[in-house]
Write a protein that binds this DNA or RNA. Structure first.
Length: 291
DNA sequence: AACTCCGCCAACCGCGATTAC
DNA sequence: AGTAATCGCGGTTGGCGGAGT
């Protein structure tokens, strides 16, 4: 390691100097506290990409990833918690969410999706007073999250959502209620994914779900994707998501624009699905959120 | 005044990816 | 092609200052 800079006499390695420049000395840095608008941007993008501070900081001119990270950990996190929102999932924290039974259910989803390798079939149907989702793994469809809209409203589920996962060995239907619990159960590592695994996440390598509605995707199988390509694709999606945020931020009404038609499905189709994705958007409107 | 607690934030650390040689 | 250096990133640490006792 280089300790001394012979030209400047600094007792710092190049890495430290670089960091000092990026985080503190750069002339274009914006000093001072974050505005409420900046805070809302951070919350919105974090909901999409998770702890990708560099990605978030790109949307805040003059702010560094370190600054955003510190602001999040010191202020935003607590604010969300005080509002009863999980800072990881941006969903309501409910008492039953923490129960072990729900964790078991989440584990079951992963296990099923990892077990089944046959081509998927997805059925979205509505039953009396509730929405039933019948899914043949590896497809797992999660209910939509409310569109993000400042000020940050707390979401209420209009209809109780029931999950039905078909066990293809026994042909049994595993049914369980799914309010705000399943989507907020930590079912994958947040650090490894480009997208927020809770708000727009990969259930596992084969399953992703979006914030915009009950859409069904199947990622290419491992043997079809080179590891590096997969990484590139994730990053690309991340960019698409944050770019979409920019579009929405630029004057469109979030409520009307963040529907299934505004989502960049073409890109996802071309990059992730490779012709194996299926969509069923017919019942999305039935999944309503109240604000 | 002295001490403790706590929040903020710059800096450090480790790791994977990329670039240079 | 292999290796070292550098870059970029996210998680964590530690020093500092203000508030409270």
């Amino acid at each position: 390691m280089v300790i001394a800079n012979t030209q400047t006499g600094l007792q710092r390695c190049g890495k430290s100097c670089r960091l000092r420049w990026i985080n503190y000395l750069r002339p274009d840095l914006k000093r001072g506290s974050f505005s409420s608008q900046e805070e809302q941007i951070i919350i919105d993008i974090h909901r999409i990409v998770g702890n990708r501070w560099a990605q978030i900081a790109k949307h805040l001119p003059g702010r560094t990833d370190n600054e955003v990270k510190n602001f999040w950990n010191s202020c935003v996190k607590k604010k969300l918690l005080s509002q009863g929102l999980d800072p990881k999932t941006h969903n309501l924290i409910s008492s039953h969410q923490r129960s072990t039974s729900n964790n078991k259910v989440a584990c079951n989803i992963i296990n099923l999706s990892q077990t089944y390798q046959k081509p998927p079939k997805a059925v979205l149907s509505q039953v009396t007073g509730s929405v039933s989702m019948e899914v043949d793994p590896p497809f797992v469809t999660l209910p939509p999250l409310p569109p993000t809209q400042p000020p940050f409203h707390q979401a209420k589920i209009h209809n109780p959502i029931v999950w039905t996962v078909k066990d293809q060995n026994s042909h049994d239907l595993i049914t369980f209620p799914c309010g705000s619990s399943i989507e907020s159960t930590p079912i994958s590592s947040s650090s490894s994914s480009s997208l927020n695994p809770y708000a727009f996440g990969f259930l596992d390598k084969n399953c992703i779900w979006g914030t915009n509605g009950a859409e069904h995707y199947e990622a290419p199988r491992m043997e079809d994707v080179q590891p590096q390509k997969e990484h590139e694709q994730k990053d690309k999606i991340c960019e698409v998501e944050t770019d979409k945020y920019e579009e929405l931020k630029g004057g469109q009404d979030m409520d009307t624009s963040f529907d299934s038609s505004s989502f960049d499905l073409e890109f996802l189709e071309s990059t992730l699905m490779s012709g194996t994705m299926s969509r069923d958007l017919s019942s999305i409107d039935d999944l309503a959120w109240n604000f």
